[in-house]
Amino acid sequence: MIAFDRVSKRYPQGHEALSEVSFTIDSDEMVFLTGHSGAGKSTLLKLIMLMERPSRGQVVVNGQNLKAMKPSRIPLLRRDIGVVFQNHQLLFDRTVFDNVALPLLIAGYSPRDTGRRVRAALDKVGLLAREKSMPITLSGGEQQRVGIARAVVNKPSVLLADEPTGNLDPALSAEIMQLFEQFNQVGVTVLVASHDLALISRLHHRILTLRQGRLIAQGAGD
């Protein structure tokens, strides 16, 4: 569950990235976030994982008010939020397996559990055969899927994605969106930021539309 209550974010330079944004995403929901670049999509996602703090208003994630959260608790919050980045943020000095295993290593899983979960996640994104490959040898779509496997390997309750299909062709993009829908069907709250309106309007989920930092629509996608 993600709830924004009249959230504004003004950066120190004076630029107001978000103004008075309010919405609620239920636990079993999948929601798209759209808008032109610079409309505030990335800022909104950063507020959810406390990479930024709001200037005004309140953000609540899974019942926790982030305003009161101490810096030392931030890692625990982030372990419960899977994030998929446009540029994947993979580490190129280690194998696909080790990339996906990173959140488990951090959360403190036993090596046996880790192996099992990593393979399950890789299987889910269709890359089980590539666990020993180095990320640099994979295609863009495959790298993005490794990023998704890493985001979900810890079974987070919230999955965020920032332009996950930004660099992919339409067919691959559709596949990736299907993956997100599958995670949503097993109970994960999914929030995908994308400006690919053609793609997301075909999927029947709620769409939040930002324009210049203001939420101008949060209706159904169809």
Binding site: P75, R78, R79, Q89, L91, I106
Partner: peptide, 16 residues
Amino acid sequence: RQEILVIKLVGGSDAF
């Protein structure tokens, strides 16, 4: 740097 950023993003504590 990149590795540290990713670790912090996926919930690595400062000690980690």
